[in-house]
Amino acid sequence: MGLGSPIPAPGSVRQVLASATPSRNSFARAVADLRGGWAQRQLWAHLGWQDIRQRYRRSVLGPIWITISMAVTAVALGVLYAGLFGNDLSVQLPYILVGFIIWAFISGCISEGSEVFIANEGLIRQLPAPLSVHVYRLVWRQMLFFAHNLIVYVVMLVIFPQQLGWDSLTVFPALLLLGINGAWVALLLGIVTTRFRDLAPITQSVVQLLFFLTPIVWIYDDLLKNAAVAERARLVEFNPLLHFIEIVRQPMLGQEQHLRHWVVVLLITVVGWALTLVALRRYRSRVAYWV
């Protein structure tokens, strides 16, 4: 600024600074939170691993107990539903086992996501870290549980071999989409339930209800073949969890994959993250006061 230039008024200085600094409720701050959380992946990866070690600190088998419990339940239901629907056990049991493995990840992201910020109240108030750190930590922890549960899947492949081909490699982008959606679900639910605490137990009840409404223990294609219930069975297509389950289960079982499941999942991913960014933009700075 030259010597002859007029001195700007205080009001104009504030306007220049305001235009140069992103607002606390701007989308730039929301995106910066997500990027900052990802940049601290060593922190949340370590915390997620410590969560598992802490939970099973005095257990001999550790998180394998979850795998054993899930395997016993899946086998019991597989034998039961195979008899009820008249299916071969080699078809019904792998279907249920893989469904349980995927459902454990989805339900974990929803249930724990509803309390992700409430459970980390101390860290949020004392540790100056992006909110997304706690969400990444949750999703990473669920991924570790998913990896543990794959032991059941490997055993199942030995007992009931599946016709896996190159198409089965699509399970990797499917798992990536599952994790990306788990992040926005946990982030959005975490913000809402932190403000309205009554929604947390409601979320738990809804998750239990969704288990019965989603084809995990019953085979959706079998109902479509039954003329008496085929029309009503098609209503399951409106359940978004059906599509998330199928994009992972079909390649894991070597089944024919359907494009509509991928289209629905991609659409939900875009819409879900758009809504989450809006919520993060408006309420990110208030979470520390709500917890």
Score class of each variant (00 low, 15 high):
residue 38 W to T: 10
residue 275 L to P: 05
residue 13 V to N: 00
residue 105 F to Y: 15
residue 268 I to K: 02
residue 40 Q to S: 10
residue 210 L to H: 08
residue 45 A to V: 13
residue 181 N to A: 01
residue 99 G to P: 09
residue 151 I to E: 00
residue 110 I to K: 05
residue 102 I to D: 02
residue 285 S to Q: 12
residue 85 F to R: 14
residue 53 R to G: 00
residue 48 G to I: 04
residue 183 A to Q: 08
residue 190 G to P: 12
residue 201 P to H: 07
residue 37 G to R: 10
residue 39 A to W: 11
residue 222 D to C: 01
residue 285 S to Y: 13
residue 59 S to N: 03
residue 221 D to R: 15
residue 59 S to H: 08
residue 288 A to C: 00
residue 106 I to H: 02
residue 287 V to R: 07
residue 231 E to D: 15
residue 188 L to W: 14
residue 65 W to P: 10
residue 79 V to R: 05
residue 241 L to T: 13
residue 283 Y to P: 04
residue 18 A to S: 15
residue 74 A to R: 08
residue 86 G to V: 08
residue 4 G to E: 08
residue 82 A to P: 10
residue 89 L to K: 05
residue 266 L to S: 12
residue 128 P to S: 06
residue 25 N to Y: 12
residue 109 C to Q: 03
residue 158 V to T: 13
residue 122 G to H: 12
residue 145 F to C: 00
residue 203 T to N: 14
residue 140 W to E: 00
residue 183 A to F: 14
residue 191 I to A: 04
residue 195 R to W: 13
residue 212 F to Y: 15
residue 193 T to W: 12
residue 116 V to D: 03
residue 288 A to G: 00
residue 19 S to I: 10
residue 272 G to W: 02
residue 137 R to T: 02
residue 158 V to K: 03
residue 23 S to P: 11
residue 190 G to C: 09
residue 148 H to V: 04
residue 192 V to C: 06
residue 131 L to M: 05
residue 205 S to I: 13
residue 182 G to N: 05
residue 211 F to N: 10
residue 85 F to E: 11
residue 267 L to I: 13
residue 70 M to K: 06
residue 111 S to V: 11
residue 176 L to Q: 00
residue 96 I to N: 09
residue 224 L to T: 12
residue 233 A to H: 11
residue 14 R to W: 09
residue 160 F to Y: 14
residue 16 V to G: 00
residue 75 V to I: 15
residue 118 I to T: 12
residue 202 I to S: 06
residue 206 V to Q: 06
residue 131 L to I: 06
